[in-house]
Nucleic acid binder design. Structure first.
Lengths: 236, 236
DNA sequence: ACTTATCTAAATCTGCAGGTTGAGAAAGCT
DNA sequence: AGCTTTCTCAACCTGCAGATTTAGATAAGT
């Protein structure tokens, strides 16, 4: 839970001097916030973050040299845990998606009422995610579409379904980059038997070598089954 | 934009008879909604969806035989476009994540005020996503954590960075499952040169064969660069 | 001018990968 | 009992994959 006994330390990063000043004044009106820094450069901002460890960072996305998304990545690499709220003029679904994926805790449009910015800070400081309804919808436009594409590849008749149990086990080991001899040892069968299985796998997946078999498996949602099944079969 | 001249057609699926009745009555109170069906079985629900093509489906997640998530998958396979709003007693981050990934348009907790359910229907019918603040936060707990894990694998010194431009091109072709001869033809160099490059790649990635080189590349965020660069080099 | 990195290539060699044929044993189905 | 599937294995063969050595050409940095 949030500590209400001390002021929330806020850092501002926006290359537009007017925005920077405006936001600073807006936040200064709130009695329980203190602006620990305000800069027009992402790189300078990173230094300030390391120095002052703010609770909240309000970050513009659209900046020269290093943009907001790159800045978030840099923060992650620094290993500093701070809550970034994105300030953006754009509501592109992929921009929102990328920002959230990188770990942003909130996303506010510059066109929104300034009270929303205060809401965002409060919500994020409280450990929650702040994403207005419209932006949530935008986010999922991208997210659900990407998920659909992902399953599209996985579907498509799927030659993997024609594999037998043993063939699945062999394929599983193939996808780990193991050679014939080691596979034979792991499954406790002869090397020639493994070759037979592998050849059958090649035919069923319509490929000519290991690499393409592995590639087919990985791009068609192959799920390793050996872990349990091998234990079952060897125990039986 | 939504058509306000006709009633919103809603379908209910919940194995709990009391819930089903309660929700039905609640919705019946709204003058601009009409319940086109209500069933306690997901499988029966699928039939009703195909038959009545409802605007909104209110779906319980926790059901015997086929649960709500499996039901969404079935709807997707049917190719019917309807808006599913999940009704759940649980706010697990991964449950919310999976539901939204499968294409749910809204998620409401059974413990929430019934007015929220009406809000959800309105919002979803309006083409937007309905995800209350707490659930949005839960969703991102899972989503951002998964994203972090993803980049963790990609990071880790990354031997890929030690590869030269040409080696990257060769690796790119390797990850497409192409053999020496074809690679040589594509890059317009001799087969022995390709072998030299491949051997250098193996050493740098610390592997002994194609398959493991490809596996390393794919699990460490290898981005194919040949598409443009090859065109550049061949043109030069 | 010297050094280093990169790309190119030939020559040689070992051996595992991949293809084919044939066949026995066990389990399940009809 | 007979058929089918699956798993098992041998023996043989071709050849590409992978390892090693040596070396010329070019470009870039010191």
């Amino acid at each position: 839970m949030r500590d209400f006994t001390r002021k929330l330390r806020v850092l501002l990063i926006d290359d537009n001097a007017n925005h920077l000043r405006g936001i600073k004044e807006l936040i200064s009106l709130e009695t329980n916030y203190s602006v620990v820094g305000a800069t027009r450069s992402a790189n300078l901002g990173l230094g300030l973050i390391k120095k002052y460890r703010p609770d909240i960072v309000l970050m513009d996305v659209n900046m020269p040299e290093k943009d907001g998304l790159q800045a978030i990545q840099s923060i992650n690499k620094m290993g500093v845990s701070t809550n970034v709220v994105i300030l953006s003029g754009y509501d592109d679904s992929d921009l929102i998606y990328r920002a959230m994926k990188l770990g942003a805790r909130g996303y506010v449009l510059k066109t929104m009422a300034s009270s929303k910015l205060i809401d965002a800070i409060e919500t994020v400081a409280d450990g929650k995610i702040y994403l207005p309804s419209i932006l949530t919808t935008r986010f999922f436009e991208y997210f659900q579409n990407a998920a659909k594409e992902e399953t599209k590849v996985v579907a498509g008749e799927n030659l993997l379904l024609s594999l037998t149990g043993r063939e699945n086990e062999v394929l599983d080991l193939l996808t780990q980059g193991i050679n014939y001899k080691s596979i034979a040892q792991k499954l406790i069968i002869s090397e020639t038997t493994v070759k037979t299985h592998v050849n059958n796998i090649f035919q069923k997946l319509q490929v000519n070598d290991r690499t393409n078999a592995v590639l087919y498996a990985l791009t068609h949602g192959f799920k390793p089954s050996s872990a349990q099944e091998t234990a079952m079969t060897t125990a039986a």
